[in-house]
Design a protein around this nucleic acid. Sequence first.
DNA 1: TCCTGTGAAACGGTTCACAGCC
DNA 2: GGCTGTGAACCGTTTCACAGGA
Lengths: 233, 233
Amino acid sequence: MTDFTSHLTGPLPPAHPQGFAVAKRISASTIRRLSFYLRSLERLRARGATTVSSEQLAEDGGTTGAQVRKDLSQFGSFGKRGTGYDVGALSEHLRGILGLHRRWRVLLVGAGRIGAALFEYPNFSQRGYDCVAIVDNDPDKVGRRWGTIPIQSADRMECIIEAEDIDLVILAVPGEVAQSVAERAVSAGALGLMNFAPTQLRRPATDVPVAEVNLVMELEALSFAIMRGGRPA
Amino acid sequence: MTDFTSHLTGPLPPAHPQGFAVAKRISASTIRRLSFYLRSLERLRARGATTVSSEQLAEDGGTTGAQVRKDLSQFGSFGKRGTGYDVGALSEHLRGILGLHRRWRVLLVGAGRIGAALFEYPNFSQRGYDCVAIVDNDPDKVGRRWGTIPIQSADRMECIIEAEDIDLVILAVPGEVAQSVAERAVSAGALGLMNFAPTQLRRPATDVPVAEVNLVMELEALSFAIMRGGRPA
DNA sequence: TCCTGTGAAACGGTTCACAGCC
DNA sequence: GGCTGTGAACCGTTTCACAGGA
């Protein structure tokens, strides 16, 4: 199984201001897998399972028991030898690690098709990500509402980020403006960005994590994979 | 710079049927970078540059000259010592490597919000990915048209894949049905899948590459990164 | 001199194997 | 006996450093 890599370009190592033991660097792949384990656990819980072994958790994630144990061991000892992990307790631990014990306030920049799709995406609010504001630079769109949320002028972005206490900014804008919107968002105090423009952002001076969702790159990797060694036909 | 990984789970190593020298395995990160270099080259070309050094190419991609040279050297020797790479020639090489010298026929499964956003996404057809058919299982949608493309019944998927000679299938469907749609698409002859459902697909028996675009996972990785070592506030 | 192409070293993530606890 | 937690071995990727051609 090949695993093509991506996307989330994050901040430099934690470098704690005080001389505390610097938290061990956690690899990107570990985080993705944690997110996956959490989903598996939730399915298990729904089915009434109360306990699960590392091997079972690995099962439909395409990984191994050893990997699951290594991943989890970076955050603590959550299992019982001879028994496995408690489904409910482990879920809660993972939710805490992934930051799902709080809700996140999201600003959507760009009220086009992609913006609309994301705004309606039910999994976001289920998981604690609330779109609390929308901006667009098209005067025809400004003033309309999506549900209860008004579309405001993109000029007001900085002020909205501060007033609404925005954590995350989703960039659903054309590639040409993505970089400048990103920089404005970061200076106004955004803690993280998710970029759908097909332009990889150059890191703004203030280093915040950026999740790059580059659909074209994804398709190119797909056609590459098909051409070499993919199904002969 | 952290680089969170993802997404494209591909076929097993090439294993050429004849006993040819098996093509060297190319890492997923290399492919992503190639895709990125291509975009940089196109910008350079638009600006009239005719030659570029590995260091310059690395510049706004957050990587190094050495990495660029290693990546490219896996496919051949495209540069001139003392000079650098010819912008036009290297672009063409990369386009060939990434499979952009042909067009790809795409079936969109799911005519909801996400489907609509992808259908309209201009970068797809610019890059050679043509959405030539749409299916949905909602009878209200079947029969409508998006541009010139009619939305057909999801029952007809297999038959469309064969008749329309579909290469890639984009799954913009709810998580619960993603797995079964994926399996049907693969048995009908799809060469690759792109999955937007927040469910990681278990590999169907017939192994085809799958690009997983898991937006929730992306957000979770983002909030994780913010919580550790992200901006203090 | 400048910049590529590439072996060799360094690094980091995954797998292995087993000691330790239930 | 079963399963976790973890040091050690392994392996792939990135970085280094330099030989060699324009």
